[in-house]
Amino acid sequence: MTEYKLVVVGAGGVGKSALTIQLIQNHFVDEYDPTIEDSYRKQVVIDGETCLLDILDTAGQEEYSAMRDQYMRTGEGFLCVFAINNTKSFEDIHHYREQIKRVKDSEDVPMVLVGNKCDLPSRTVDTKQAQDLARSYGIPFIETSAKTRQGVDDAFYTLVREIRKHKEKMSKDGKKKKKKSKTKCVIM
């Protein structure tokens, strides 16, 4: 069974824990209790493949930012979460993405942009803004509501699919490099 290491990042209060708990335990946590770091595991079937999701729910508070490099190193894919009623959390996505790329030393890291709290009427981040940002990053965008469960499975499952595509691409690139290195030079 394939294991996928997913990391949920975003500013404090955007609903990272609520999304994760909704996926794992099928219930909505409405009281806000700032996370330092929590880890969850769940076995699911995605596109006919049974897999184990190892999900790291991270601290959004700035005082825990020193811990970010460590979990970013171990993560295979990242859910970059903002709240649709919090423009600052949307603007912060850029910083999370840049930090992930720096730590992973790669421009090509599996990510999904997630606009959470889409059940709320007080939207300050337009869907088109988020779609445009995701398009500019070359990553999928999904709106979710941890409260109603809308888009929750889709967000995590899409990230797994992005990781699969990335692994497939990397193995193809690896095979191309191996083929090239088999060419021999004969000096007579």
Rank of each mutant, 00 (worst) to 15 (best):
A83Y: 01
Q70K: 05
K104R: 13
P110N: 03
G115K: 02
V125S: 10
P110C: 03
Y71S: 14
L120M: 10
I84M: 15
D69Q: 06
H95S: 12
I100A: 02
R97W: 15
K117A: 14
K88G: 09
T74W: 08
T87E: 15
G75S: 11
I100K: 01
R68F: 06
L113I: 15
Y64H: 10
K104L: 13
Q99Y: 11
D108Y: 07
L113N: 01
T74K: 08
V125I: 10
V112E: 00
D92F: 07
V112F: 03
I100F: 04
M67V: 09
D108I: 04
E98L: 02
C80G: 03
D119V: 03
A83P: 14
A66H: 10
K101F: 08
D69G: 04
N86W: 01
Y64I: 08
S106I: 11
F82N: 02
E107M: 10
T74M: 13
V109A: 04
V81L: 10
C80D: 01
V109K: 02
V81W: 00
E98H: 02
D105R: 07
F82H: 08
F90V: 10
Y64N: 15
L113R: 00
A66C: 11
P121E: 13
K88L: 06
V114T: 01
A83S: 13
R102A: 08
R73W: 05
E107Q: 06
V103S: 06
Q70S: 11
D105M: 11
G75Q: 06
M72G: 06
S65Y: 06
K117P: 00
R68T: 14
S65H: 05
F82E: 01
L79E: 00
V114Q: 01
I84D: 15
T124Q: 12
E76R: 03
Y96L: 15
P110Q: 02
R73M: 10
L113M: 10
R102Q: 06
Y71N: 13
K104W: 13
D105A: 08
Y96G: 02
F78G: 00
S106L: 11
C80N: 02
K104I: 10
R123V: 12
R97F: 15
K104E: 03
E76T: 13
K117D: 11
H95F: 04
F82I: 07
V125P: 10
K117L: 15
Y64W: 07
A83K: 05
L79V: 08
R102I: 05
R97T: 13
V81A: 05
D69K: 03
L120I: 05
V125C: 10
S106F: 10
F82W: 06
F82T: 09
E98G: 03
